[in-house]
Amino acid sequence: MEREHFSRQYDAELNIIREKLLEMGGKVEVMLVNAMKALVERDTALAERTIAFDHEVNTLEMEIDDKCLEVLARRQPAGRDLRFITLAFKIVTDLERIGDQCANIAKRARELNAEPPLKPYIDLPRMAHCAIGMVKEALDSFVRGDDELAVKVCKDDEFVDQLNEQIQRELLTFMIEDPSTISRAIKVNHISKCIERIADHATNVAEMVIFMVKGKDIRHTIA
């Protein structure tokens, strides 16, 4: 069982960081859902709102960094607290990058919505669904200190990578068959890459959770 610090204020400060990270995670989840919805349902207004929403994620990034810095300066954390703070510093960067990727998806959706549809989107939403699950589970594993769930996230990345490759192959055939699709296909390809990146960021978070819980660095070891 997790013991409390002698200093309740210290516990409170760590909790603020934990809660803000979760809030940030929640926001990037919403961004990804909405960016995909804007694409699939051709909702340009939603794409615009999603792009603007990135600002909130960026603000949280700065707030969390600031709080982490303060705890480092005032508390000189050690052991699991030190691992938590250094982890928070890194998670925040991954979450911010996820937010950027979602904004990128929304931007490409906005452009694609201005042209006739290339094809019905089937694999992209599947891929996004999996990536959202990974982001969610990575954060859950962080909150619960659940290293098994974190390992699952790392393994799920494989599936997203495979879908990304499949989509790229498919788009290539489109472009070869009909060069007039090239401009749109490149944009769809970009979205696929963005989702693949998001899954990579979720994997980074999961790997760091494993470090936080186990004190063992498993980065670059899971194929």
Partner: peptide, 19 residues
């Protein structure tokens, strides 16, 4: 010892959680 100690008692002490 100050990042990833093996024993829980050590970790609780260095993080200021000692009961």
């Amino acid at each position: 010892i100050f990042t990833t100690p093996d024993r829980k008692q050590t970790e609780d002490y260095i993080t200021g959680r000692f009961g």
